[in-house]
Write a protein that binds this DNA or RNA. Structure first.
Lengths: 194, 194
DNA sequence: CCCACGGTAGACAGACCTGTCTGGTAACGT
DNA sequence: ACGTTACCAGACAGGTCTGTCTACCGTGGG
């Protein structure tokens, strides 16, 4: 009854390798054989932990989601104004897009490879997206923003556009216009209290 | 010396079939065998017109680009104000996202499957994106917008976010907030000439 | 002691993929 | 009449994919 309080090292290695390869080259492009070779894991072990490739893909996306959540938690932990936190959050998004290995949003990319909305992969994507939008909504509500729901949706749209643009266009340019774009979206509720 | 003034019917059939399948299911997922079967074309004929699958993918994207350009030309042909044209353009984007077969942006989707920026497919994508951004820039310039380049980039970002959101979230909601989002992006240059 | 467990190594099946090749038909311009 | 061109039908090669299976090893708890 050794519960997996500590995750199996082999499983960990597989997940780390899969994450790097899936993100860099696309999910369908990377085969199981390559993952187990680079992770140094036997095939039987792999299929013991992940009965199906789809299971691995879902685990990859959940892992990615965990990463982003904990990153945001660190950002959000301060006692700054909620609006400041939103700006900081988007600053990070613009900055990450300029990083060397940046390749767009793992969730948007995976969605392109799994178009069926009822597929488990799409469900994992949807859950992550719900979280992110909820985060924006909470921050806007805490800021006392009028029409927080609608503005959260707009910021979510903006975020998607930023990561796509950082991937396919000039990331530095995107980074430099991010703050202004967020401010424009937030503007209508900015009371003219000068 | 029969120039292809008229496109070969077999080639046309292949392109039409490929377009539907690639868009609906993803590029890597759809094999040549299936395309030629559904198009009713012999394999040799296919490889005569498209020496490589990549060639077909590029042709698919160019075709898609032509479609969008001609759609926009129709929209743009009127003698309305440039700003009105921009709003009309985004209205169409929001509306198309609610259509039954909508599956996101073919270019963004293809980019996820071909991450290498030097790949011909990525070049075709980049060209299409340059066109679209140029279109926005021209409209903003015609509207006498201050800082047209920057605002064009923001609208391009917004557009990407809208199509991604229409695909992965609630398209009707996206459609309903599109106009307001565009107006917020355009706002700072709206001279307070009331 | 022993045996369950997590692991390694790798063969194998069966499907699917791209791309080549052979062979035959029909239209068309010269 | 002839050659070119476009087309269809389908076999084939060589590779890759997912997933299964056998066989073996080391360690630690009962």
């Amino acid at each position: 009854m050794t519960h997996d309080i500590v995750e199996s090292p082999a499983r960990r290695r597989v997940l780390t390798t899969a994450r790097a390869l899936f993100y860099a080259e696309g999910v369908r492009r990377v085969g199981i054989d390559r993952i187990i070779a680079e992770a140094g894991v036997a095939k039987a072990t792999f299929y013991h932990h992940f009965p199906t490739k789809d299971d691995l893909v879902c685990a990859y996306l959940r892992e990615q989601s965990r990463s982003e959540r904990s990153l945001v938690e660190r950002l959000e932990s301060g006692d700054a104004e909620p609006t400041t936190k939103i700006l900081a959050l988007f600053d990070v998004i613009g900055e990450v897009g300029c990083g060397p290995g940046f390749n767009g949003c793992p969730f948007i990319n995976a969605a392109a490879e799994y178009p069926d909305p009822r597929h488990p992969v799409q469900r994992a994507i949807a859950e992550h997206r719900r979280w992110f939008r909820g985060l924006l909504y909470d921050l806007l509500t805490a800021a006392g923003h009028a029409d927080a729901a609608r503005t959260a949706a707009m910021l979510s749209v903006l975020r998607d556009g930023l990561v796509v643009g950082s991937d396919l266009d000039d990331p530095a340019e995107i980074r430099d216009l991010t703050r202004a774009a967020v401010e424009r979206i937030l503007a209508p509720a900015a009371a003219p209290a000068t």
